[in-house]
Design a protein around this nucleic acid. Sequence first.
RNA 1: UCCUAAGUAGCUCAGCUGGUUAGAGCAUCUGACUGUUAAUCAGAGGGUCCCUGGUUCGAGUCCAGGCUUGGGAGCCA
Length: 481
Amino acid sequence: MKRTKIKDILNTTDFGQEINIQGWVRTFRNNQFIAINDGSSINNVQVVVDFLNTDDALLKRVTTGAAVSVTGTLVESLGKGQRVELKVKTLEILGDSDPEKYPLQPKKHSLEFLREIAHLRFRTTTFNAVFKIRHALAFAIHKFFNDKGFVYMHTPIITGSDAEGAGEMFRVSTIDFDKVPRNDDGTVNYKEDFFGKSTNLTVSGQLEGELAAMAFGEIYTFGPTFRAENSNTTRHLAEFWMIEPEMAFCNLQDNMDMAEELLKYVVRYALDHCGDELEFLSTRLLEEEKQKPANDRSELDLVTKLNFCLDNDFVRITYTEAIEILKNSKPNQKKQFKYLIDEWGADLQSEHERFLVEKHFKKPVILTDYPADIKSFYMRQNEPDETGRRTVAAMDILFPGIGEIVGGSQREERLDKLEQRMYEMHIPVEEMSWFLDTRRFGSAPHAGFGLGFERLVLFVTGMTNIRDVIAFPRTPNNAEF
RNA sequence: UCCUAAGUAGCUCAGCUGGUUAGAGCAUCUGACUGUUAAUCAGAGGGUCCCUGGUUCGAGUCCAGGCUUGGGAGCCA
């Protein structure tokens, strides 16, 4: 008999039919009720065994984690907790699970413990929900861009350019560490290496993305990204996924509009397609927050927070306006900030971003037009203001609890201005000649941004540690599984 | 990398100013019960108290160094 997915029977009213289900035992209660999950739904189906007429040795093997195949009759449940249940005709153990050794118990485990057994944590309801939502968000992103006619570009994972300027890189090499080829002056001879030059894992597909955008008009990338920063936080990974759209004939305003529309679209998609999962995570979060002091709890529950994000325009202010707000803010005047705001030009610390997003505006905020000195070389230079301050057409989208979820800019399309900036910031101009060709031949205004996928998943699932929204997190000192 | 807290049974945690044989709940095992919802009841087993060194008559507890983990910061998505 072909197996039926649990998802398809939970809401059925077609009682009396005989079906087969296959899944993993979550718990076996009262020697007769087996809760089975097959991953198709976060909900289990209850299977009822006639234990008086079933072999004791077989029942002993029905343990938490075991894989089973059950054929039986679908009936309306006599009990309270569920609508339907399966009355067993035949029960087969497909794979045993030694209860002395299986680490998952039918109880709440800490996320820290589950992180240590990441290979098994998919089998918990929480991670089932998180990874279903992760999938839905990934799908929604492709759907959004596809529907708009964007071309999905696969930019290289291995890169020979070290000018991307987005942090420390992981070296890619086949050189034997015990026999490193050297030049006469003692430096490493990369001509002997696999690619005949020094190569690294990509920190961004943006530069290649720009090349494609200057032909297709609108493209996006969605792939893994690697940063060898020694970052130990709840929002950084050494290997993470990033979405990077790049659009020709597009300015900073268009860029912001696109980013806001994308974020709202995918949140809407999750609300429409992952109702059960979000409901579960929302309740879970409320339970968790009961442990916290009252003023540390969130004001909105997860689903309400997501809807609130959809119903309100993101606040758009310039860096200069943000500095004014922060300067006059209570925590600044009462010297509660660790880093006090006194001068234009300072980089905003996360305490400042949090104040703007979580206290002052209480909604997502897009900050624009940052000082040129604290931003990357490729961002388009604005006209200096009346006081001579130099800014660039950058934009960062800040989300409550997450911080920067999107970073983008209009790109500097004027060759002379771009080259001049590259010299100032010691970017090797000759090596980047291929990149500058876009400005030499048919240059056009264009813009793009990077969206941190795991940070998006954090926001939508309400999880608080980025290591819990990627299957096997890579962080300093950890590359297990 | 910096600041900070923690590490005791499979899991979650208690263990006071250093003092006999280190505890609880859940899990596991044995038995009972049988329409349960993290089933219930009774009993049993289960420990490198993170590691190394030190102080002391005596260290889970105090000191030094190290390791690991959580939270915060920086870097950023």
